[in-house]
Design a binder for these strands. Structure first.
Lengths: 241, 241
DNA sequence: GCAAAAGTGTTCCTAGTACACCCATGA
DNA sequence: TCATGGGTGTACTAGGAACACTTTTGC
């Protein structure tokens, strides 16, 4: 990765992405661990090129980390406190990793660029977890799916950003009907119900839930799914595009 | 006004405010006209100081234009297309107002600063129109309330920003219950109904509307309001804080 | 036939809508 | 007492919640 301060980025503006996936009745968030000593986790982030729409920038960041195109994504909030800076985190990172005297010249320039106050635009993405092949950047030690209830301790206000993203997702589900982006192409009604129960952290009555979803009129019923289990085979559904 | 490029602003980030007021069954927006030849209208805007929260910046911009404190305001969207720049507008303004050869040195520096691509954070504000004393800045020729249905032709994407603000206001009314910020301290139920009918551009049945609003349980009933009219005096209400 | 899970229908209740009715006010 | 507009209650209805019932599947 080239030095950001040398890139044609808009300065002091960043994009932070909360990438939601769903697996095994758990809502998950894709989070990289930074490749330095000291256990630092940070949301997939990036900056905006001068000639790039912010939506394009978010798409680029997401594509780089998930290796899939056409991701469902929504801008949900700007985080703009004057105190929003990487400085405490960077200083801690440097203390763990470098002799302080060694930070000079070019490094100093990067340091100055990174430790300015940043305004961050929050996006959330909904992806089919099976289609994602998580990609490390060369700054990442690892990149993993974490259950939203067992997130690692993240830098800056990234935990708050995840909280806000979840709230927005919940409030959007009613009108935007976008939850199906978290499921595979075809799915059973039971899977939809489990997803909703996970997102809202509450249970639904099976029969009424089925009615509610079908009344949305956004699903098409396909063939039955025979699992070999000793019970009635459920229908598969697909989201109408 | 000092030259923005000399101020301690975050560059390429602006704040645009849609200030909603309500009068005479009309939803209005407070819009300054720029003090140059050529008829340019632009939303109340400003920039963010390095040591200032974006919310504070929005409050400052609003205070400067309305001369009231404690304004209800909500961040609603970021406008971040790569093509978002003041350049076409500024060039037109300069063509109307200056000999091109006169734009030099210091002016050139301001020109360069202003014509960069800007990411703008949209805020909407709800104010009691009676409490506002619109304030011109020294860049303004005038500042007026315009009916949302008769807005002047504004620069850049400011019309789109107003549209987005209105949509967000409508969608927020259900859960945020913030419409009362547009009314005086005390008001009758009829006034509330007319306000809602204006915002949603539809009519409500009087008796059911009263029930709906009272069931929100956010109003306290005060004394009656005797207008001298030959009919039953309506109660005044106040929004519980 | 039986257990398990899926699909459909039926009843009940609540919340919203339409509307009838009465009340207060000043001319 | 009359016209006008405000306040309250009641009947009706649609949509949601609870639940009973039937169907399908493999052992």
């Amino acid at each position: 990765m080239k030095n950001p301060s040398q890139q044609n980025y808009i300065s002091q503006v960043s994009i932070d992405c909360v990438i939601f996936g769903y697996h095994d009745r758990q809502l998950k968030v894709l989070i990289p661990k930074i490749n330095f000593k000291g256990d630092f986790w940070a949301l997939p982030s990036g900056f905006v090129y001068q000639d790039e729409d912010i939506d394009q920038a978010a798409e680029r960041i997401l594509r780089d980390r998930t290796s899939i195109q056409d991701i469902y994504l929504e801008q949900f909030r700007v985080f703009g406190k004057a105190s929003r800076t990487n400085k405490p985190f960077l200083d801690e990172l440097i203390a763990f990793n470098f002799d302080k005297l060694s930070v000079k010249n070019e490094a100093q320039q990067e340091y100055d660029w990174f430790t300015k106050r940043f305004i961050s635009i929050g996006y959330y993405a909904l992806v089919d977890i099976n289609k994602v092949v998580p990609q490390k950047t060369d700054l990442d030690e690892s990149i993993e799916w974490y259950s939203i209830h067992e997130l690692p301790r993240m830098i800056m206000d990234h935990s708050d950003i995840v909280d806000e993203a979840l709230k927005t997702l919940q409030s959007h589900l009613d009108d935007k009907i976008n939850a199906f982006n978290l499921l595979p192409d075809t799915f059973t009604m039971k899977e939809v119900q489990e997803l909703y129960e996970t997102i809202f952290d509450k249970t639904f009555v099976r029969t009424n839930f089925q009615k509610m979803i079908l009344d949305m009129n956004v699903l098409e019923r396909l063939e039955k799914k025979f699992t070999g289990a000793a019970n009635k085979a459920p229908y598969l559904y697909r989201f109408k595009k």
